[in-house]
């Protein structure tokens, strides 16, 4: 009997390790998506939950499936959705670009400092990531609001005579995203730049390349995996960002995250919200696949 049990554990023991996380994530992460996909084909109804059933199993054993494409049609016809998709795309793109322009020199400077300094700098860059995201967005408001530090300083210096209106504009949303996601850009860039073979740069310098030339010919191409990983780490969350446009942006800064939130909590139109979420997800598959590809490559290296 005991031998039988031991053999059983030996044969199926690994499933005791695999199954708990697998089942948990399937039930609470995968099935929700499948289920939302289903609801996105349902109609809104005045009941609890507020949508109709997609399939009906009637008393005479007839299964009727009614897929309603109304929600998707609605998405295509209402300009708000197209507008907010494009607006989110544009905001995420330019914020990522600016993060890259600031983050690259930062990561490069880190990679070129001594080992001891690198450790301290890493800590300094990571620390804000551990402190609350929500509170950092709130803290930024203290800098850019009408009577915040920036305006006070500029007024005091006499550079401006009227406080700048930054809050509730697109500029505030950009600043918020750049400020919040800059560490996500710096860290993967630093990881690739640090591993870079310095001898290649020396060789190109020996061969007469100017430092800029060497940078564009050698360093930049070699650091592309880091550039792409960092960019995706900023771009993907930025495009679905809710907190930043909601706290810093104005009523015109309709990012898709805000539209979804309103659709859900204010209009209570769950089928349309599901359709928006599914459509949004389809748009994200590309960037996510690119990110996975490059991060897998980086792990292998």
């Amino acid at each position: 009997m005991q031998q039988f049990l031991a053999a059983l554990v030996k044969r199926y023991g690994r499933w005791l390790i695999i199954l708990p996380p697998l089942l948990f994530l399937v039930v609470f992460f995968l099935i929700p998506f499948a289920y939302s996909l289903r609801i996105s084909f349902a109609d809104t109804a005045l009941q609890v939950p507020p949508y109709t059933s997609v399939w009906n199993y009637s008393a005479d054993h007839h299964l009727t499936i009614r897929l309603s494409l109304d929600n998707y049609r609605y998405l295509l016809n209402d300009e708000v959705y197209a507008f907010s998709y494009l607006y989110s795309l544009r905001t995420a793109f330019f914020s990522t670009l600016i993060c890259l322009l600031i983050g690259y020199p930062m990561a490069y400077a880190m990679a070129r400092s001594s080992r001891a300094t690198q450790g301290i700098l890493m800590m300094i860059i990571i620390l804000p990531f551990w402190t609350s995201f929500l509170l950092r967005v709130y803290a930024l408001e203290g800098i850019i609001r009408e009577n915040g530090l920036l305006n006070s300083a500029l007024l005091w210096l006499g550079i401006i005579h009227q406080p700048l209106q930054i809050m509730h504009t697109s500029l505030a949303v950009y600043l918020g995203i750049i400020y919040s996601y800059l560490p996500f850009m710096v860290l993967p860039l630093f990881a690739t730049l640090e591993k870079l073979d310095h001898e290649l740069l020396e060789a190109s310098a020996d061969l007469g390349s100017s430092p800029w030339r060497a940078f564009f010919d050698v360093t930049l191409p070699l650091s592309m995996p880091g550039v792409i990983a960092g960019s995706m780490l900023v771009f993907i969350p930025a495009i679905g960002e809710f907190v930043i446009p909601s706290l810093l942006g104005g009523p015109n800064n309709l990012m898709i995250g805000r539209v979804l939130w309103d659709e859900f909590f204010m209009n209570r139109d769950w089928p349309v919200a599901s359709a928006v979420a599914i459509a949004f997800l389809v748009f994200l598959v590309g960037p996510i696949a690119i990110y996975q590809h490059y991060s897998a490559k980086q792990q292998e290296a």
Partner: peptide
């Protein structure tokens, strides 16, 4: 995106 995870 958190908002999609939350809704689903």
């Amino acid at each position: 995106p958190e908002i999609i995870t939350g809704i689903t």
